[in-house]
């Protein structure tokens, strides 16, 4: 993040938020990035999108290659240091920065990692707990019943549970219908789904069945990885359930096709 943008934010007196879009959003679903940007601006933040951002390094890290991501983590930490807050539209990438980066280092870099960790938030928890998203004059309710998929890292590493539900209610007038086993993993697990596809598919099927039995037609959530994996499985097995990232619902984006949907 450049000195210029940092200075800009400070001058405006508004909190300076670095938006870390995540590699999946960057590569597969820019609409989530733009939705996040809009929401943060509505919440009164000065938002910068550091151009050096790539990926937080979870794939290699979760496969036990700590060494490979040291350089990447340092670069990410340095890039985010000037901001007041780091906001990420993903529980698992936010968890990576706040829970796991500090464990990679000792000494100076450990402290720097901790400092970034302490100001890193998952998008919906930030908009609920830190910079409240104002209630819009006009609600944009999505057409259809909405169920919410809690990502494991969001739940357990970032304590995201009620925030997205509350926001959906206040901004879209949506009363989320709850899955029976909302704290059970959907089977994505990053590279897990490619290493153990059959088990992963079984877990996705359970999640989809659970969602279907609520009568929901839209399944939303805060983690694109889970949604892509679930959308892919739903399409393969011929299930009709639209997956959309919660940021998209919150800005009322109904034009972008759902995850995996035709243009």
């Amino acid at each position: 993040m450049s000195e210029r943008s940092a200075a800009q934010g400070k001058a405006s007196g508004r909190p300076l938020v670095a938006l870390f879009a995540t590699c999946l959003v960057d590569l597969f679903r820019p609409s989530v990035g733009f939705a996040s940007l809009t929401l943060l601006q509505r919440a009164g933040c000065e938002v910068v999108v550091p151009p050096e951002q790539t990926c937080c390094g979870q794939p290699a890290y979760n496969n036990g290659d700590r060494a490979a991501i040291i350089a990447l983590a340092k670069q990410t930490i340095a890039m985010l240091e000037p901001a007041d807050y780091v906001v990420i539209p993903s529980g698992s990438c936010a968890g990576m920065l706040s829970e796991h980066y500090p464990r990679l280092f000792d000494g100076e870099w450990h402290d720097r990692a901790l400092a970034v960790a302490s100001k890193t938030f998952e998008l919906t928890s930030f908009l609920r707990d830190i910079a409240p998203l104002p209630t819009p004059e006009k609600l944009h309710p999505p057409s259809g019943k909405v169920a919410y998929h809690d990502s494991c890292a969001g739940l357990r590493e970032m304590q995201v549970r009620e925030q997205p539900r509350a926001l959906l209610k206040s901004t879209c007038g949506v009363e989320v219908v709850e899955l029976q086993q909302r704290d059970v993993c959907c089977g994505f697990g990053g590279t897990f789904c490619a290493k153990m596809p059959e088990i992963s598919a079984k877990m996705a099927d359970d999640k989809l069945k659970d969602a279907a039995s609520t009568g929901a037609t839209i399944l939303t959530g805060g983690d694109l990885g889970c949604l892509m994996s679930l959308a892919g499985r739903a399409q393969r097995t011929g299930q009709n359930l639209e997956m959309r990232h919660v940021a998209e619902l919150l800005v009322g984006d109904q034009d972008t096709p759902p995850v995996g949907g035709a243009d």
Partner: peptide, 17 residues
């Protein structure tokens, strides 16, 4: 590994960046 059990959602036209 992925596509043995799932379809793979295609990206939107360009990257966010």
């Amino acid at each position: 590994g992925w596509s043995s059990q799932r379809d793979f959602p295609a990206p939107q036209q360009k990257t966010f960046m």
